[in-house]
Amino acid sequence: MIVSERGPARNDSRIKPLAFLQRYGREIGLPIIVALMVLVFSLNSAVFMSLPNFRNIGVSAAALAAVSFGQTFAILTAGLDLSVGAIVALVSIVGALVMRDHGVAAGVAAALATGAAVGLVNGLVITRFKVFPFIATLAMMSIVSGLALGLSGGVAVTGVPGAFSNLAYARTFGVPVPVVISVGVLAACIVILRFTKLGRRIYAAGGNEEAARLSGISVGSVKIAAYVLSGLCASVGSLILTARVASGQPSLGATLPLESVAAVVLGGVSLFGGRGSVVGVAFGVLFISILSNGLNLLNVPSYTQMMVIGGALILAVSLDQIFIGAKAGRK
């Protein structure tokens, strides 16, 4: 005989602190930590709690935010995009060159097309040639960096129109334009992930690839789209950085692969794919940016900051494993 399971879900009887943490820890944990960090820094630094400093944080966070939102797509498909830093460099060179000769609009279009094209190649290599995302994007990082250095001859591309570079310091309603742009990217990503078929399929492909495939979803196309989106977002990040330095830089974005993955993982997106939200990633970006800003104000050397960010990443993931992941993963 087969005995049946009876009655409605039985997990509503145990709403205990630990259970609550397991259920909502990922969503509320990071915002609380970010708020605590703001509190600590404002108590220790007179400058921290000021509008100019917040604008500073916003501007420095904007590029990382755009890149990290893109990284989220790749990681949600259980992949990874290590080429984002190289994309930023190549896009910066291409954007600056085209802008110098053909104007701002053409430059922006060329920049976005370049980012999307590299993403497309990433996606094709991963899905058609069956190269693991880690290796595929690592190799692309090298190829694309080489391309950026070759195109620029290893030196900065100057002559970026002032109309473009001034945007980095312009404000609309008191909010720096880079922040406005990154919030726009955030909104677009939310819409794509939550309200389009592609978005739902990205979660399906990452959460259970076999299920997605056997449901008639073309998992390959979904993954390719994810890497194209990652490339596009990286090129937006690159435009923000290019405007800030008012030139095309072949070495731009070297730290972005690490920082964007850190922001995504801190933001609660599972490296195994299929779980997490881009809003969480926004908090991950805020965490990294506020931490580095606060440490600057406290005169902590930048080398030490690198160590702190690495340590914070390990700490965050291990806390997640101990309190949430390990328990939630088991029946």
């Binding site: 739902r200 056997l214 979803i217």
Partner: peptide, 16 residues
């Protein structure tokens, strides 16, 4: 064949 983080409805209409 379930994508665990999608809703029941999303799973039912997966690919469709």
């Amino acid at each position: 064949m379930i994508a665990p983080d999608l809703s029941v409805a999303e799973n039912i209409f997966l690919g469709n």
